[in-house]
């Protein structure tokens, strides 16, 4: 078998383009990127079969002239899988469009919220500053006598903003 430069160039090009598209926020581009990557991988598998030979059918060719059928079986499986997943991703794009008129990958809101939180996590606060019902259970300080009005009792802990009376910050 003579080494050919065509395969590596095509495979490498497809991988590069595929990865580039996969990194995009637009889902359609992601899908196209995935298809390119899938094809690149299929070509890679095809190239593992070695030299070109005759169709691997008994009676049609001698075994030593046949091309390796196994990678082709791999590719067939991979194509079917890629096909199924593409259909699923298309359905998701459609759903995303129907829901939000948008097919960009959205942010994880909860993640942003946690990341944007300041140092006002309830665990780091002095329990005395909290409304009684927000204090850590069993905290010694929470047993001290302290008058609370009904309005105070309505205050509740929140990690984002702590609307506490007596919180001087």
């Amino acid at each position: 078998m003579t080494p050919t430069v065509v395969f590596p160039v095509i495979i490498g090009g497809l991988y590069a383009a595929g990865v580039y598209l996969l990194l995009d926020r637009s889902l359609t581009r992601v899908l196209v990127g995935f298809l390119l990557l899938g094809n690149a991988t299929n070509l890679l598998l095809l190239s593992t079969g070695g030299y070109r030979g005759l169709a691997p059918i008994l009676g049609y060719a001698e075994p030593d002239q046949m091309s390796d059928p196994l990678p082709q079986a791999f590719i067939l499986t991979a194509i079917v899988i890629t096909f199924g997943i593409s259909a699923f991703v298309l359905a998701m794009i459609h759903r995303s469009w129907a829901l939000a008129r948008n097919e960009a990958v959205a942010n994880d809101e909860e993640d942003r919220r946690v990341a944007g939180r300041h140092d006002t996590d309830a665990d780091e606060l002095d329990p005395d500053d909290l409304a009684p019902d927000d204090r850590p259970a069993g905290h010694a300080d929470s047993l001290t006598t302290r008058r609370r009005t009904g309005a105070d009792l309505m205050e509740v802990a929140d990690d984002v903003t702590l609307p506490l009376p007596g919180d001087e910050r």
Binding site: P132, D133, T144, T145, R146, R148, G150, L153
Partner: peptide
């Protein structure tokens, strides 16, 4: 009512 017990029962 005062203290934690009060807070509990109120809640």
């Amino acid at each position: 009512q005062t203290g934690r017990r009060a807070a509990w029962s109120a809640a």
